[in-house]
Amino acid sequence: MLQVENVHAGYGRIPVLTGINFTLTDGQVIGVLGHNGMGKTTLLKTLVGQTSLTSGAIRFDDADITHKSSFLRARAGIGYVPQGRAIFPKLSALDNLRMGFVPSRDLSEEEAIKGIVTEFPRLASILDRAGGALSGGEQQILALARCLCGRPKLLLLDEPTEGIQPSIVDEILQVLIRLHLERGLAIVVVEQHLDFIRRLSDRVLLIEKGAITGEISPDKVDEVQEYGGYVSAG
């Protein structure tokens, strides 16, 4: 599904990614662990097209998307939930969901939103509330639900548990596991909560100084505790 080949990227003259290589197969979940400042967020922004490559190539669903815009990548089936959620604070939760909908011949906007609210029942009672008036956990659920309204094939998640209460973390985790198992949703998740990574991922990549330096199985994440200052499961 996704091929990342010797990708270099950064900001202006400041290099961040220094030769990223990995592949992701259909329906697979990859966790990414690393210290702060090692390039995790830049990797996701590069995959979604918000940061331009200086060299290398990205292929998605057998198509070269190296130089395609974020808009075209979203249309191709790549969804992105950024760190900090980036919801629209003055829009209602319902209108935030509508912003994430991608027009389709086989699914109306109303049907898509109804399906997402079924996945996240917590949203039902807050659809008319402004995004900025929601709690941090509600905003995170809204950001994820908005992205899923576009029915992505690949979901990119940046620190989805940051600042979220444990009950909502578990709620998000259960939905992602279900979508992964039942619909084959592929996911790349940057996260420091070890239990979240362990329970969700099929593979875990280690990133250091802008390059993938290793891969471990999810049940081995506790053995690299010293690698990146991660949050334990409690």
Rank of each mutant, 00 (worst) to 15 (best):
G150S: 14
L173T: 03
R198T: 07
Q192H: 09
I197P: 01
D202A: 11
D202R: 06
S167C: 08
L185R: 01
D170V: 12
H180N: 15
G184N: 05
S167I: 15
D202N: 14
V188T: 03
L155W: 09
P160I: 05
P166E: 11
L156T: 10
L176A: 11
P166Y: 11
S201M: 04
I172L: 15
L200V: 03
A186Y: 06
L157N: 08
G150D: 11
I187G: 00
K153P: 05
I172D: 08
L181M: 03
I164Q: 12
G163T: 13
E159S: 06
C149W: 07
H180L: 01
I197W: 00
V188I: 15
E191M: 02
L155C: 10
L156Y: 05
F196K: 02
R198K: 13
I187V: 14
R198E: 14
L181V: 06
H193D: 06
V169Q: 12
V169K: 10
Q165C: 04
A186F: 08
E191S: 05
D170Q: 14
I177P: 03
P166K: 11
I164F: 09
I177Q: 14
I187M: 13
K153A: 13
Q192V: 01
L200G: 03
L181D: 13
L157Q: 05
D195T: 05
H180P: 02
E159L: 05
R183L: 06
L155D: 12
G184A: 05
S167M: 14
R151S: 14
E171F: 14
L176G: 09
L176E: 10
L156C: 09
V169N: 05
A186D: 07
L155Q: 11
I197N: 00
L155R: 07
H193I: 02
R183Y: 09
D170T: 13
L194V: 13
S167V: 15
L181G: 00
P160M: 05
L173D: 03
L200N: 05
